[in-house]
């Protein structure tokens, strides 16, 4: 049994475990399907259960049950031994350290999605139909494949600081020195550092915005564009009066999707500053409280907070899906 659980440090053992895990899974699924298939005149429930059951069991065990547990935890003290009412929430909304965290998160969610969408849109419009379109788009698209950890390393190197007396190795400080300034410890400067961390996320997400917006710009019916042109619209007028209104649904999707990613941003803050120097956000503080400070109650309250913030978006999404469903 132990052999099946832990592979220790042996790579061969790890690969064997991986194969066993997949084989075990295939065997279970095959068994379910064979049972469903063998039964003569099965009821609809039986078939539906066989197909959708595994997913529902996993969702119940992996999302519903633990989410309920976290909500209960958020009203308990640090080790869950007694209920303390709303104290965790009160603390999160009153202590200066946590207010800073909340403020930073709000700043992230307001600034990063807007900038990523704006840059993605501008770039999509500017390179559209140019000779280098494919290549130019690939350049901005590529960071989407890079992990937030990898991207953070890339940007930390750009922000690298060396004292004025020696040669700079970070590009940004070198540019400042070339322009006659003196080098800055970028990651220590508040509130500049939060914005510099945002750059990493914007850098990753702009490709996403560009792809979606570019596709929806192409989908604008040509007769609308023609009619507008006959009315004498061109350039920026066309952009504001025709392009933007036509792609509004896509803009909303892009903004909310990036905002949801931004809200949960953890990797970048963890890798760049570990939340020090006044850069922490809710998702990082959740990790810090839950797994470093061993304050499960407060950590749970922060997780619930994240959840409460996304509820309006969930409701909006469901409503949009219902509308799309009716159109079909």
């Amino acid at each position: 049994m132990d052999w099946l659980l832990s592979a220790g440090d042996d790579p061969v053992h790890k690969f064997l475990l991986m194969i066993i895990a997949i084989a075990l899974f295939v065997a279970v699924m095959a068994l379910i399907l064979v049972v469903v298939d063998r039964r003569r005149n099965p009821s609809k429930w039986f078939v539906a259960g066989g197909f959708v059951g595994p997913a529902l069991v996993l969702l119940a065990a992996g999302l519903f049950y633990p989410a309920g547990g976290t909500i209960v935890n958020s009203f308990q003290n640090r080790n869950g031994s007694e209920f303390i009412g709303l104290d965790n929430y009160a603390r999160a909304f009153s202590e200066p350290a946590f207010l800073l965290v909340l403020g930073n998160t709000a700043l992230w969610v307001l600034v990063a999605p807007a900038l990523a969408t704006f840059i993605g849109l501008v770039y999509a419009v500017v390179v559209d139909h140019s000779r280098f379109e494919k290549f130019a788009k690939a350049l901005v698209f590529l960071p989407m494949a890079i992990s937030m950890v990898g991207a953070s390393i890339i940007w930390r190197f750009v922000y690298e600081f060396k004292p004025e007396s020696v040669e700079q190795t970070g590009l940004l400080n070198q540019i400042i020195v070339w322009l006659g300034g003196s080098p800055v410890q970028f990651l220590l400067e508040r509130p500049l550092n939060t914005f510099l961390l945002m750059v990493v996320l914007i850098w990753i997400q702009t490709g996403f915005a560009m792809t979606l917006l570019s596709a929806s710009i192409r989908a604008i019916p040509t007769d609308i564009v023609e009619a507008a042109r006959l009315d004498g619209l061109s350039g920026l007028g066309m952009f504001w009066r025709i392009t933007i209104p036509s792609i509004r649904p896509a803009l909303v999707v892009v903004l909310t999707t990036i905002a949801m990613t931004t809200l949960k941003v953890f990797d970048i803050v963890r890798t760049m500053t570990a939340g020090r120097y006044g850069t922490s956000v809710v998702a990082n503080e959740f990790y810090e409280q839950s797994f470093r400070q061993n304050n499960a109650g407060l950590g749970a309250a922060l997780a619930v907070l994240l959840f409460v913030i996304v509820i309006p978006v969930i409701i909006y999404n469901v409503r949009q899906m219902r509308l799309a469903e009716e159109v079909r």
């Binding site: 959708v52 992996g62 999302l63 049950y65 997780a303 978006v313 999404n317």
Partner: peptide
């Protein structure tokens, strides 16, 4: 497969998409 409660279940699954996984981590 046309089974009763299908639509409501599907909407529930759809809604779960953006639930922050942080809310599940400690109990899990």
């Amino acid at each position: 497969i046309d089974f009763k409660g299908r639509d409501i279940l599907f909407v529930a699954v759809f809604a779960l998409q953006i639930v922050p996984i942080q809310i599940t981590l400690i109990p899990l």
